[in-house]
């Protein structure tokens, strides 16, 4: 009885230490559980894969560093896929704190494929006024963003000559950690301009997007770090990239974290029911 009562009052620091150790260990020594791709990630991959070479893929970086472990690997994997297929990548964002991450991706990834800023990739930056920004881009991108993030005129960037409005772009991938995000691209870019919209979301918000996926409004969905890992595997299996896969590497840690939480819940329930029975 005392043992179960002790379990119910266990010091939270012990839980923190156990969790910390089990999350850290697989990062040092991977378990090698492997990742298989699911149908939602495959749909997004197929959609990006089917865009003709030379066309533009729009990626909206709607997240901040808090969601970076889940969403940044999606951004790099989708960009690598696009460049391997000789697509041009147009980046924009509805979150001001996502700017640094988009700039990092626009700087780090293109050189891997010999791509140049202005010719193969452009980052528009952040603009306030979510719906007005998307609707404005639908009419004329240069009206909303006359300059890129660093103040260069869009007219001076060769890539932007063929990209005047959203209808010139076959697809958008919105990587969203909340609102504003994919739901705004669905409401305005998809419904009004008929754009194909794929998305990558944090695991906690992925369930909200399922109805849009089933209705066909969403072209594909990457859910959390697992979604990122699935896309990384698809890109690598197709020989589009040989780069390090951070999401795949982190999946072992996530597996163990889930198991720890489950074991803790089971122990907590056993202790609760045993002590309750004895008390009654």
């Amino acid at each position: 009885m005392k043992f179960f009562q002790y379990l119910l009052k266990i010091d939270r620091r012990i839980i923190y230490i156990v969790m910390g150790l089990l999350v850290t260990l697989p990062l040092v020594k991977p378990l090698g559980l492997g990742v298989t791709s699911g149908p939602r990630a495959a749909r997004l991959f197929q959609a990006v894969d089917s865009i003709p070479a030379g066309k533009t893929l729009l990626i909206s970086v709607d997240f901040d560093p808090a969601s970076m472990p889940e969403l940044y690997p999606m951004l790099t994997a989708v960009m690598r896929h696009a460049f391997a297929k000789n697509l041009k990548v147009l980046l924009c964002g509805l979150w001001p704190t996502g700017m640094g991450l988009a700039i990092k991706a626009a700087t780090d990834i293109p050189p891997e494929y010999g791509k140049k800023y202005g010719e193969d990739v452009v980052y528009l930056g952040y603009k306030p006024g979510v719906d007005a920004v998307i609707l404005g881009m639908g009419e004329n991108i240069k009206n909303v963003y006359p300059y890129d993030y660093s103040g260069r005129s869009l007219d001076s960037l060769p890539m932007m000559r063929d990209v005047q409005r959203l209808r010139d772009i076959p697809m958008i991938v919105a990587l969203s950690a909340g609102t504003p995000g994919y739901s705004d691209w669905l409401a305005y870019a998809q419904s009004r301009y008929g754009m194909k919209v794929g998305t990558g979301l944090t695991a906690v918000s992925a369930a909200d997007a399922y109805p849009f996926l089933q209705s066909g409004q969403l072209t594909g969905l990457l859910a959390g770090m697992k979604g990122a890992a699935e896309y990384e595997v698809l890109v690598q299996k197709s020989n589009y990239s040989k780069a390090y896969m951070p999401a795949v590497a982190a999946m072992d840690s996530q597996s163990l974290a889930h198991v720890v939480i489950m074991i803790l819940v089971i122990i907590g329930n056993i202790a609760y029911f045993v002590t309750r029975k004895r008390r009654s």
């Binding site: 266990i10 939270r12 839980i15 923190y16 969790m19 910390g20 999350v23 974290a257 720890v260 939480i261 803790l264 819940v265 122990i267 907590g268 329930n269 609760y272």
Partner: peptide
């Protein structure tokens, strides 16, 4: 992740 583990242990009861 740490808070969730601790909260689930203390509050997630059937």
């Amino acid at each position: 992740a740490f808070y969730m583990a601790s909260a689930a242990y203390r509050a997630f009861r059937a």
